[in-house]
Simulated assay, not measured.
Amino acid sequence: MKLKKSVFLAFASFIVIGVSRVEAQTITREQFKDSIQKLPYFSIHKDNYFVTGIPTNTAINSSSADAKYQISFKQMITRDQLPWDTYLFLTYTQKAFWNIYEDSFPFKDINFNPSITWGKPIFDKKDRLRGLGTVSLEHESNGRDSIYSRSWNRITFSYITKIAKNTRGSFELWAPFAYKDGNRDLLDYTGLGEINLEHEWKPNKLYLTLRMRKGLNFDAKGSIRTRIYFNPFKQNRSNQYLMLEYYVGQAEGLLNYKESKSMIRVGYVIKTNEFSFFR
């Protein structure tokens, strides 16, 4: 747990330093409107990936090593602005944990996460883009019944902005409801929100991300996830990268959300570009 506490402190310091160095945005209100008109109706939402790896806190065998993949997309309802300069879109994310090293290749856990989201760009007095705020109605479950059923619903408030040179931040706050059947203490492990940071070391070539969640209680429950993205290709028109991921904590999946995990995985990813407005 010393490692986790150190990362938490470094993370907090990084935010304080980063905010003090934030630079002015260059995208204007009109440029943002033009960009929205050029966006496809159907696009990537979160990262789409396939990775595989091993645990670092237990014995390595066919049951503890696994693969994980995610499919995530977004559908804009309309490109036209709604009242108060807002936009509406649907998202869907599916994450699966796959025991590919066991006989018959069983799926251990599959999590489904649809949402409907209302988004609003935030501009300063000079009509320069400062951030993107969203409000989402989300459902997340593992699609199972009986004692294996896990699900929760939440209203998610999020804000995405640039917090330092080449560094973007995404901050989420959750208002959960209808979640106590089957996972009454889920929030003790997930908390009420998360913080994501993305740093661009080399444009379209090398990125580092960090995600942090903290459970409700004053203990070590929560999670930290770090990722390194590297593009080995000369050209990268499709956001294709190799990804190294390290996850430590609980609630990586819904089925065994109380289980403490420490996993390192590597694989292929089609990276989301939702932070691209703040590069």
Rank of each mutant, 00 (worst) to 15 (best):
L3H: 09
S6H: 14
F8M: 07
F11Q: 02
F11K: 00
F11N: 01
S13E: 00
V16D: 00
I17D: 07
G18S: 09
S20W: 04
E23I: 03
T26Q: 14
T26L: 09
I27S: 08
R29D: 13
S35N: 15
S35I: 14
L39E: 15
L39I: 07
Y41P: 05
Y41T: 12
F42I: 12
S43A: 14
I44M: 11
N48R: 07
N48C: 11
N48G: 05
G53V: 08
I54C: 07
T56R: 11
N57S: 11
A59K: 15
S62Y: 06
S62H: 11
S62Q: 12
S64K: 07
D66K: 09
D66A: 13
D66P: 07
A67C: 05
S72P: 02
I77C: 06
R79C: 02
D80H: 12
D80S: 14
D80N: 11
D85C: 04
L88W: 05
L88G: 06
F89L: 06
L90M: 10
L90T: 08
T93D: 12
K95R: 13
I100H: 06
P106S: 05
I110L: 04
N111M: 08
P114Q: 03
S115A: 14
P121V: 03
I122V: 11
I122M: 10
R128F: 15
G131I: 01
L137E: 05
E138A: 09
E140S: 05
N142C: 05
D145P: 03
Y148H: 15
R150W: 03
S151C: 04
N153C: 03
F157G: 10
S158R: 00
Y159I: 01
Y159A: 01
I160S: 08
T161K: 00
K162G: 01
A164L: 00
A164N: 00
K165H: 12
K165N: 10
K165E: 09
E172V: 01
L173N: 01
W174R: 03
P176G: 04
P176Y: 05
Y179T: 05
R184L: 10
R184I: 09
D185W: 07
L186I: 15
T190R: 15
T190M: 13
G193Y: 00
I195V: 14
E198W: 02
E198G: 10
H199N: 14
H199S: 10
L206A: 09
T209Q: 03
L210W: 06
R211V: 10
F218I: 13
D219M: 06
R227V: 06
I228N: 02
P232W: 06
N236E: 12
N239M: 09
Q240S: 11
Q240P: 01
Y241G: 11
L242W: 10
L244D: 05
V248T: 12
N256Q: 15
K258H: 15
E259Y: 11
E259M: 13
K261V: 15
I270R: 08
F275L: 12
